[in-house]
């Protein structure tokens, strides 16, 4: 084995070994472990491809997604319209491509919101303990008592139908998960001896929380975030399906399904492609999340 390979497997080199280049940090080491997992890499490739597709939708899509072609209503897949057209003559492929913006955007934004809210509250609850912990956790319990999708639908209905409100509703619904996870992780890490060592050297509490605890809980949060993105994509599709998300004529996979349900027999392609897209995106994020969980598992370190 080469020296680099030894370092990657976590074997400490003898003190006398010459150091020829920068040692791999945890990031590069984690990347090597992730790259070794084929399913995770498949998930990552699909996720990256979908994100690129969403970003460069203007170049990828063959047609304007909201342009109607009255000469091609519910036409079956053809060379002109590879995925067919819908009931008002929208090109389905173009709507899938632009719909990725709504779906992935909703998934990423809502989870970013959930983490941005959940992490600080979980950190405070887990690190401060006492009455503060009690208050935050009882509130979280109350939110967790309501099923995720039901809460998202209720919030979205309350905020009014729009894609932005759907993102906020999904994000708020997912927040309690991250509060709980962060709190549990913080409590586990705070009991570690290096946290006491950090106190012994004179770290103030805020610095212990940010410099010593947070970096050690990021992996768990990252895994949960990836898996929650998959759930959020489904939630966005559900809200759009119910008319609470993306508003017509702007495309979203969920709202495309909503329209397609009326034409399942006459134009099944209207339902198949958005359904397959949701399936693919959710699968990719789940594969990636599982791979991340394995690659970041500290028990696999030597």
């Amino acid at each position: 084995m080469t020296k680099a390979a030894l370092a990657l497997t976590g074997v400490a080199l003898p003190a006398s070994a010459p150091v020829l280049r920068a040692e791999p940090g945890p990031v590069r080491e984690f990347w090597a472990r992730l790259a070794a997992r084929r399913t995770a890499m498949v998930g990552l490739v699909i996720v990256v491809a979908l994100i690129l597709m969403a970003i460069f939708a203007d170049w990828v899509a063959p047609y304007d997604p909201i342009a109607t072609d009255w000469g091609a209503i519910r036409s079956a897949p053809s060379w002109a319209h590879p995925f067919g057209t819908d009931e008002v003559g929208h090109d389905v492929l173009s709507r899938i491509v632009f719909g990725a913006r709504a779906s992935l955007g909703a998934g990423l934004t809502s989870v970013a919101l959930a983490v941005a809210l959940g992490l600080p509250f979980g950190l405070i609850a887990g690190y401060a303990g006492g009455v503060v912990d009690m208050l935050i956790m009882r509130l979280t319990d109350a939110l967790l008592a309501i099923p995720f999708l039901i809460l998202a639908i209720a919030l979205a209905a309350f905020l009014g139908p729009s894609l932005t409100n759907a993102m906020v509703a999904i994000g708020l619904s997912a927040t309690s998960t991250f509060v709980r996870l962060t709190r549990a992780q913080v409590q586990a890490v705070a009991a570690e001896e290096f946290v006491e060592a950090a106190r012994a050297v004179g770290n103030p509490p805020w610095r212990i929380a940010l410099r010593h605890i947070v970096p050690n809980i990021v992996p768990a949060i990252l895994v949960q975030a990836t898996l929650t993105i998959a759930a959020a994509i489904i939630a966005e599709a559900s809200l759009s399906f119910l008319g609470l998300g993306q508003q017509p004529p702007e495309p979203s996979w969920g709202s495309m399904l909503n329209v397609a349900k009326n034409f399942l027999e006459q134009a099944p392609w209207m339902a198949i492609w958005p359904g397959a897209s949701i399936f693919l995106a959710v699968l990719a994020f789940n594969l990636l999340g599982d791979g991340l969980r394995d690659a970041l598992d500290p028990r696999q370190r030597t």
Partner: peptide
């Protein structure tokens, strides 16, 4: 609390388990 933190420059501690006393994510 602040005075005690400053005092910790003069009083240090070495722990039993060197595997647990180092932050795994800090160089």
């Amino acid at each position: 609390a602040g005075e005690m933190r400053r005092m910790r420059a003069r009083i240090q501690m070495v722990f039993q388990d060197p595997y647990a006393a180092l932050n795994p994510r800090m160089s």
